[in-house]
Amino acid sequence: STVKVRLGHLEVTLHNVSEEDVRELRELWKNGADEEDLRRWLEEWKK
């Protein structure tokens, strides 16, 4: 499914993403990950 995730002022649209992935991303964000960390996660996730 396609999910729009809003993290601060960063809005990311993920395609074919699982609930688990979204949860993981939100956890990262809650734990103080900055945009760099999130971008890195997204790069990994896209592979």
Rank of each mutant, 00 (worst) to 15 (best):
S1W: 08
S1P: 05
S1V: 14
S1D: 05
S1M: 15
S1C: 14
T2A: 05
T2C: 08
T2K: 07
T2Y: 10
V3L: 11
V3P: 01
V3Q: 03
V3D: 01
V3F: 03
V3I: 14
K4S: 10
K4F: 03
K4M: 07
K4A: 06
K4G: 02
K4Q: 09
K4D: 03
V5R: 01
V5M: 13
V5P: 00
V5F: 14
V5W: 01
R6T: 13
R6M: 14
R6K: 13
R6L: 13
R6A: 07
R6I: 13
L7Q: 02
L7Y: 06
L7M: 09
L7V: 14
G8D: 04
G8E: 03
G8W: 02
G8M: 03
G8A: 05
G8P: 04
G8Q: 04
H9F: 11
H9K: 15
H9I: 11
H9N: 15
H9D: 14
L10N: 08
L10W: 15
L10Q: 10
L10Y: 13
L10F: 14
L10M: 12
L10I: 14
E11P: 01
E11C: 13
E11F: 09
E11W: 15
E11H: 11
E11K: 06
E11L: 12
V12S: 01
V12W: 08
V12A: 03
V12T: 04
V12D: 01
V12R: 02
V12H: 05
V12M: 09
T13V: 14
T13W: 12
T13Q: 04
T13R: 03
T13A: 03
T13Y: 08
T13I: 14
L14K: 00
L14N: 00
L14H: 00
L14A: 01
L14V: 05
L14E: 00
L14P: 00
L14D: 00
H15S: 06
H15K: 06
H15C: 08
H15Q: 07
H15A: 05
H15V: 08
H15L: 09
N16M: 05
N16H: 10
N16E: 04
N16W: 06
N16Q: 05
N16S: 05
N16K: 05
N16V: 02
N16A: 05
V17L: 10
V17K: 01
V17F: 05
V17P: 06
V17I: 10
V17N: 01
V17W: 04
V17C: 03
V17Y: 03
S18T: 11
S18W: 03
S18Y: 04
S18E: 04
S18I: 03
S18A: 09
E19C: 07
E19W: 10
E19N: 08
E19I: 09
E19F: 09
E20L: 07
E20I: 07
E20P: 06
E20W: 05
E20Q: 13
E20Y: 06
D21M: 13
D21P: 01
D21W: 15
D21I: 07
D21Y: 13
D21C: 08
D21N: 08
V22R: 06
V22I: 14
V22P: 00
V22N: 02
V22H: 07
V22E: 09
V22G: 02
R23G: 06
R23K: 13
R23P: 01
R23I: 09
E24M: 13
E24D: 11
E24C: 08
E24G: 08
E24F: 14
E24L: 12
E24I: 14
E24V: 15
L25R: 00
L25K: 00
L25C: 02
L25P: 00
L25D: 00
L25Y: 03
L25H: 00
L25Q: 00
L25T: 00
R26A: 12
R26Q: 13
R26L: 11
R26K: 10
R26E: 12
R26M: 15
R26N: 11
R26C: 08
R26W: 15
E27W: 09
E27F: 06
E27G: 03
E27C: 14
E27N: 10
L28G: 01
L28T: 01
L28I: 08
L28V: 03
L28W: 07
W29H: 04
W29S: 04
W29Y: 14
W29D: 02
W29P: 00
W29I: 15
W29T: 07
W29V: 13
W29G: 03
K30E: 06
K30H: 08
K30Y: 07
K30L: 10
K30D: 07
N31P: 03
N31C: 05
N31K: 11
N31W: 05
N31T: 10
N31R: 11
G32D: 06
G32T: 03
G32S: 05
G32A: 05
G32E: 05
G32C: 05
A33L: 05
A33G: 09
A33E: 04
A33I: 07
A33P: 07
A33F: 06
A33Q: 04
D34S: 15
D34Y: 06
D34W: 04
D34R: 11
D34Q: 10
D34M: 08
D34F: 06
D34C: 04
D34V: 10
E35D: 09
E35R: 04
E35H: 07
E35Q: 09
E35L: 11
E35V: 12
E36T: 11
E36R: 09
E36V: 10
E36M: 12
E36P: 05
E36Q: 13
E36L: 11
E36K: 12
E36C: 09
D37H: 11
D37R: 14
D37T: 15
D37L: 14
D37E: 15
D37K: 13
L38W: 04
L38E: 00
L38M: 07
L38K: 01
R39L: 13
R39F: 11
R39T: 07
R39S: 06
R39E: 06
R39A: 09
R40K: 12
R40G: 04
R40T: 08
R40Y: 06
R40C: 04
W41F: 04
W41I: 03
W41R: 02
W41L: 03
W41K: 02
W41P: 00
L42E: 01
L42P: 00
E43S: 09
E43P: 01
E43R: 11
E43V: 10
E43Q: 12
E43K: 12
E43D: 12
E43T: 10
E44C: 13
E44M: 13
E44D: 11
E44P: 01
E44A: 15
W45S: 02
W45M: 05
K46T: 12
K46R: 14
K46H: 13
K46M: 15
K46E: 09
K47Y: 07
K47F: 08
K47C: 07
K47S: 11
K47L: 11
K47N: 10
K47D: 05
